[in-house]
Write a protein that binds this DNA or RNA. Structure first.
Lengths: 296, 296
DNA sequence: CGAAATTACGGTGCACGTAATTATC
DNA sequence: GATAATTACGTGCACCGTAATTTCG
């Protein structure tokens, strides 16, 4: 029997232009897409694609079927919008966040969301920025609070904070030269960093490259907390959200290294796809924006 | 994610009036239906039924969702109808038949069907009449060629043959009284029969009951061929399609017992549901009708 | 020869059906 | 107390992802 997954796959192939692209768009693999189409063709009793062409061309019947598929998928979206008042939404809502969010505004955010959407079933997952983006695109999450910029025009995006970043060094790292350091001087320190998939690390890479340095990481760790600990221990220097670590600076555990040119700010966005949950997501996004200043 | 099976279940419950009735209509069980609804509600984020009422009442949101579901299911049906020329249909088509059909017109029928629908993938299954009806209702088959009457108004039905039936006795059963036998006299013979789910047996039961006799079967067997063998062997008498066994009568292996009142005729129908394959089924039905006289 | 779809295959999660429980009239 | 839906649970299947194969340009 025809299933929505098959219809979705067919539609995605036509939209994306190839089986492989459709697989990526739907967050699955090429063989899975291929199989869904074979099954759909068997169910319907006619071929949808002419496999003799590259890329596969729609058959006459495939063309005829396409608008029906689009309409069916639109209906699925409209089903979720049937809920006129988002406050009544009692379903699951998955928010992907960074560690920074988890350490700062998450408790306040959850409190605010529950106040406006009392029946919602929240799920949060901490990941690095690029993984959060991918989860959104693959529909594994409904919203992300992450450094931008958003990967494409596919997502609703709203800027919620602009973090001031600063290179930090532990007290035991030895004397620092006075005044702002150029990139070349900075790059001579051991660089501690989150992994390549992190938003902070993207800033580091870009800044170093723009200033003629090759990023050479000494140590990568996916935990910001662990990273700060290693920095304090004098293992190297790390780029971190300035305000979040000001207490450590005041206590003398961390020292701030100014740079020239200065580090850019890191913009946090709330991101969500068009998936029929926009009404709910819009409310959550408002609350994210409200707590945004707490990020730094 | 919302699936067509969930939507189908929801729609069927509203149509049928209860979870249990929907399960029967869809050929599944009550728990399966219940689970699909729970999942659908979880996906959508709102309740569809008020479980506090008996039978469960649609919530406000359930009411709002219903037309979208109906539209989606209608789209699924239209998808199959996308095929404008049924002769191009290259899918599976499952025909349920009785043993009588298999023994008489099946080869001719298959030849004719393949001529008109050259790409079709035919599947045939031999079963007793009641099982054929159930397979149709549960969507396990696409067409049945079986004794009527059809169980409800749910199926397309077309009469394709009217079989003359006759009680038959083997040569070794001993002398028969001359002239037509009343039901009471007939019932004193050992009665051989197909099982209760057979169309022939339904005729026997009804006729005996109408004429004041309790059906008392000596031996039941689901094979008409085996039944005729046992009759020839003198184990008892059996009601069988008259024309099909005329050669055995001519050879003296079988004798015909006329009754009073005479046995009714057994009407064969071609049956198929509304499932989006009507165009194909209509063509197949024409061919069934064309070979119908071959049934007797 | 390279890109892309299909086929093959092993594993896993999900959906089903049976049976027991709960709830409602 | 009876009917109907839910919950619990074990099983089988279907779908997925990895990898190998085939098929085009």
């Amino acid at each position: 029997m025809v299933s929505l997954r098959q219809v979705e796959a067919f539609h995605a192939i036509v939209e994306a232009g190839s089986f492989a692209a459709a697989a990526q768009a739907l967050g699955t693999t090429q063989p899975a897409i291929s199989k869904r189409i074979v099954e759909l063709e068997a169910d319907l009793g006619f071929l949808l694609f002419d496999r003799g062409a590259r890329p596969p061309q729609l058959t006459r019947h495939g063309h005829a079927l396409l608008p029906l598929c689009a309409e069916m998928l639109a209906l699925r979206t409209r089903m979720r919008a049937t809920l006129d008042d988002p406050a009544e939404y009692a379903g699951q809502f998955r928010i992907g966040i960074t560690e920074l969010v988890a350490l700062t505004v998450l408790p306040a955010l959850i409190t605010r969301i529950r106040a406006r959407l009392p029946r919602i079933r929240l799920r949060t997952e901490v990941k690095l920025a690029e993984d959060l983006h991918q989860d959104l695109l693959d529909r594994r999450s409904d919203m992300a609070i992450a450094p931008g910029p958003p990967p494409g025009g596919l997502l609703h995006a709203r800027k919620v904070a602009s973090l001031e970043l600063a290179w930090m060094a532990g007290a035991s790292l030895g004397p620092l030269p006075p005044g702002p350091l150029p990139a070349a001087a900075l790059a001579r320190f051991p660089l501690l960093a989150q992994t390549q998939r992190s938003g902070l690390q993207a800033v580091v890479n870009e800044w170093l490259l723009e200033n003629g340095q090759r990023p050479q990481l000494i140590l990568a760790c996916n935990s910001l907390t662990a990273l700060s600990g290693m920095t304090i221990a004098g293992l190297g220097i790390a780029l971190m959200p300035r305000s979040q670590f000001l207490p450590k600076v005041a206590s003398g555990e961390l020292r701030i290294i100014e740079t020239t040119p200065p580090m850019p700010r890191l913009d946090y966005h709330v991101l969500y796809p068009a998936s029929g949950l926009e009404a709910v997501a819009g409310i959550v996004a408002e609350e994210v924006a409200a707590v945004g200043p707490g990020l730094g």
